[in-house]
Amino acid sequence: MRLSTKGRYAVMAMADLARRQSPSERGLSLADIAERQDISLSYLEQLFARLRRKGLVISARGPGGGYRLATAASEITVAAIIHAVDEPLHATRCEALEHQGCMHRGERCLTHDLWDDLGRHIENFLTSVSLADVAEGRVGGRMGVREAAE
């Protein structure tokens, strides 16, 4: 399975938004997020249009406008962000809804079940990680390393 820049950049930008958003602010500009995360502004605009349509962010136009999370960062999963930008999470060559396999005659390849199980593990993991976990560095054992250093 390969996660494209759509999914990675959407998570990066949303984590930036979650980390910098404060209750008193009206919104954060995509230009600022693009600069901090080194992402093309036009690409980020496309991603945030999808994130807005899926209800993960809200936007306000005009002075003081920008983007905000639609709900608390602890309620948004990484999987939801990736799905919102139309990024598939399956690891097989077969389409998820197809009954046929990916081989020439419609058979499943020898390793289909392996990749299918891997895809489910990835989906379960990304569903268990919240945007708050990412923004606050509680992913990948970092929390344990930080606690040990303190």
Score class of each variant (00 low, 15 high):
residue 1 M to L: 08
residue 136 E to G: 09
residue 114 L to W: 08
residue 140 G to A: 00
residue 131 L to K: 01
residue 18 A to E: 05
residue 5 T to K: 13
residue 91 A to R: 03
residue 126 L to C: 12
residue 1 M to F: 04
residue 67 Y to H: 15
residue 101 G to W: 00
residue 67 Y to L: 11
residue 24 S to K: 11
residue 96 A to I: 09
residue 73 A to V: 11
residue 131 L to C: 03
residue 150 E to W: 09
residue 59 S to N: 08
residue 20 R to A: 09
residue 21 Q to A: 14
residue 66 G to Q: 07
residue 39 I to F: 01
residue 140 G to S: 02
residue 127 T to E: 15
residue 147 E to S: 03
residue 46 Q to H: 15
residue 144 G to W: 08
residue 143 M to A: 05
residue 71 T to V: 14
residue 150 E to C: 05
residue 120 R to C: 00
residue 21 Q to V: 05
residue 16 D to C: 12
residue 25 E to C: 05
residue 31 A to F: 13
residue 84 A to T: 07
residue 109 C to K: 02
residue 142 R to L: 12
residue 76 I to A: 03
residue 95 E to P: 04
residue 50 R to V: 02
residue 90 H to L: 06
residue 4 S to K: 08
residue 64 G to S: 04
residue 136 E to T: 14
residue 34 A to K: 01
residue 62 G to Q: 07
residue 60 A to P: 03
residue 119 G to H: 05
residue 22 S to V: 14
residue 148 A to I: 02
residue 133 D to I: 00
residue 19 R to Q: 11
residue 89 L to R: 00
residue 150 E to D: 07
residue 20 R to K: 09
residue 84 A to Q: 08
residue 150 E to N: 12
residue 85 V to M: 03
residue 117 D to P: 02
residue 50 R to H: 13
residue 20 R to N: 14
residue 35 E to P: 00
residue 145 V to T: 05
residue 121 H to E: 09
residue 73 A to W: 08
residue 132 A to P: 02
residue 137 G to F: 04
residue 146 R to P: 04
residue 145 V to K: 07
residue 41 L to W: 00
residue 96 A to N: 06
residue 112 H to V: 07
residue 33 I to M: 10
residue 142 R to H: 02
residue 1 M to Q: 12
residue 54 K to D: 13
residue 43 Y to Q: 06
residue 15 A to S: 15
residue 105 R to F: 14
residue 71 T to C: 10
residue 98 E to D: 15
residue 124 N to W: 03
residue 132 A to C: 06
residue 30 L to H: 01
residue 41 L to P: 07
residue 124 N to G: 13
